[in-house]
Design a protein around this nucleic acid. Structure first.
Length: 208
DNA sequence: ATCAGGCATCGGTTACATCA
DNA sequence: CTGATGTAACCGATGCCTGA
């Protein structure tokens, strides 16, 4: 075994022994499911010594130019990447990584915006629903009041003349289906009026 | 048509710096 | 000092393209 081969094997052993102890130990695979351990990332070469490799943060100037380019176009063709890299004195790989991370940030920001937009739409819809429901309640009350009045009128007219055409008036003749879809079952005795014949007073319908 | 290899991109993650 | 946050870098998976 060459020393090179031994290094590779050692690396693998190290990697295998470094499965996230706290994380992967907790992962209990479902039956038949294979949990692939993630390879642990190498530490920065600068680790432990010298500030040589420590210059991780990009300068404001570099970031500004990168932002400017990102604003123009989110995708990065290799020609532009190389040009930018030499302009900024960076490795093309760094430029690619920056764009990659920037796209991810942009996407998550967009998702957040989309979420808050949907949330406010949802909130206003819920509010509208509440308003409509309370309106329905009010209308139900009005309706039952009107029914009471109708009944008393019918009773009175029955007493006056049993031959009156009005005495043959019957609620059962009305369409029973109309309000079912509005949670107003049981209110089938509502009159089905032609459009725009709105009822403003409790007894206005009598004049129609 | 298909297969392998190269490359770009993505989602997820890690390491590190900075700040409150 | 410490936890939270931001970000550069890495990893593995995937899809597309191209040449054999």
């Amino acid at each position: 075994m060459t020393s090179n081969m031994k290094t590779q094997v050692d690396d693998q052993m190290v990697l295998l022994s470094q499965y996230y102890p706290g994380i992967y130990d907790q992962l209990i695979p479902e039956q038949g499911e294979v949990v692939k351990p993630r390879r642990r990332r190498k530490k920065n070469k600068a680790d432990g010594n010298s500030s040589m490799m420590r210059k991780r943060k990009l300068s404001d100037e570099q970031v500004n130019l990168l932002e400017q380019n990102f604003g123009n176009e989110h995708k990065l063709e290799s020609e532009r990447k190389d040009r930018l890299a030499s302009e900024l004195g960076l490795d093309p790989r760094q430029v690619a990584v920056w764009f990659q991370n920037r796209r991810a940030r942009w996407k998550s920001k967009k998702l957040e915006e989309e979420y808050s937009k949907l949330k406010s739409q949802h909130d206003s819809t819920v509010l509208e629903k509440c308003q409509l429901e309370s309106e329905i309640l009010k209308l139900k009350e009005q309706l039952s009041e009107a029914e009471k009045q109708i009944n008393s009128l019918v009773e009175r007219s029955d007493g006056i003349s049993s031959t009156s055409p009005c005495s043959s008036f019957s609620m059962e003749a009305m369409e029973p289906h109309f309000l079912g879809g509005f949670g107003m079952e049981g209110l089938e005795n509502v009159f089905c009026l032609p459009e725009n014949n709105y009822i403003h007073g409790s007894l206005d319908w009598m004049n129609i």
